[in-house]
Design a protein around this nucleic acid. Structure first.
Lengths: 201, 201
DNA sequence: CTTTATTTAGACAGATCTGTCGGTTACCCT
DNA sequence: AGGGTAACCGACAGATCTGTCTAAATAAAG
């Protein structure tokens, strides 16, 4: 709006981008739609033309966060073939996340913190958590261990621990701590070390 | 208020109690002072007579949470003398916390999620985190290990992981997962197992 | 070019939220 | 009894927040 430069993307897209930045950085309840439309450089009418209301905007914000994060994690995993390396890769991706200067924790944990039990936030958080669990359960099942389910639970806990510690203490190194501990857990579960190459990519 | 029964405790005390319940269960930004005074059965004037404003109420809410939790953890620790047992006791206390039906995560993590950088919430969270780190660093130093600092970091990560997982998945068993993993970490750090009794309390 | 979809600006309603103020009532201590 | 503190009630100001609406400008598409 500031300048009559040609409209970059659609209003809906810009709203989503503004919502992503503001909701993540400052919290969902904290940020009003006035702030969102101002940051997007868009009229208020466009928000209610593109979305049914703030709830839908929040829902799409979380959905997109989920999608982007899943892509990033999947890419990190798929760079390796060895089951053990694929698991550890998740914590390396976490490390790159924590290194971002604007890191402010998991969008779903933060949303849950201020969400009512049956809100869109809680809904999105539930499907996100299902994804996290499936992720680690699949990875753990690919390894040759006694109790992949318990292993997966432990890996999820290390994942959550890294995310929370990194946020609360502004400590990006939590990713390495989690990774180191994960290695210990994998050793204990009888997950074999890398045999040959697999440094793919 | 409902009945003219003799005033139970002071208005300030009831406000604090109401704030504790509502802020913890529903979030700080979500709950307005009208809800707080209604739940406390107290006039609005009493709030601004006892506190300078909502911020102070929030600050005292978090301070009291900190104090009560510290007491509880300390009590759990002091039931043991063996360094290893004292560390593991923390995760057992977490287990009793998660078992509470109203458990909704760490008040300080939740507060941080919706807090501005220099808010009272952020302030209280900082001193809480300092306490957590000192707690584990002291415990780790008491054990006879090579790198107590790194050990403490790992234990904090497991603590945070348990707290976060238990909240997100409504999974109280995360405490046992964290404890099990902590044992593994302690073994690896060369922390000796219980020699004799210490099953105090 | 003409129709349709998208976007804009701003005013407005209705709710809610924090904080203030004035006047009144109950309690405690001396 | 008297004086001060604590608590009450309710109304109000001012801000903010979600959502609606109108009417016009602009883009896209046939």
């Amino acid at each position: 709006m500031t300048k009559p430069e040609q409209r970059r993307r659609t209003a809906k897209h810009r709203l989503l981008q503004a919502a992503d930045e503001l909701f993540y950085n400052e919290g969902i309840h904290t940020v009003g739609i006035d702030r969102v439309i101002a940051h997007a450089g868009v009229a208020k009418g466009s928000l209610y033309y593109s979305f049914t209301g703030k709830d839908e905007l929040v829902h799409e914000y979380l959905t997109h966060r989920h999608g982007k994060w899943a892509e990033r994690v999947t890419a990190g995993i798929e760079a390796h073939t060895d089951p053990r390396a694929r698991i550890l890769a998740v914590y390396d991706v976490l490390g790159t996340l924590f290194a971002q200067p604007d890191y402010r924790g998991c969008a779903f944990m933060n949303a849950t913190a201020e969400a009512a039990p049956d809100s869109v936030e809680a809904q999105a958080a539930t499907t996100f958590r299902a994804w996290v669990h499936k992720l680690f359960l699949d990875l753990a099942t690919d390894g040759d261990t006694d109790d992949p389910k318990q292993l997966a639970e432990t890996l999820v806990l290390l994942y959550d621990g890294a995310v929370a510690t990194a946020q609360m203490d502004k400590a990006p190194e939590a990713a390495r701590t989690a990774r180191r501990t994960a290695e210990l857990v994998l050793d204990n579960a009888g997950m074999p070390h890398v045999k040959a190459g697999a440094k793919a990519l």
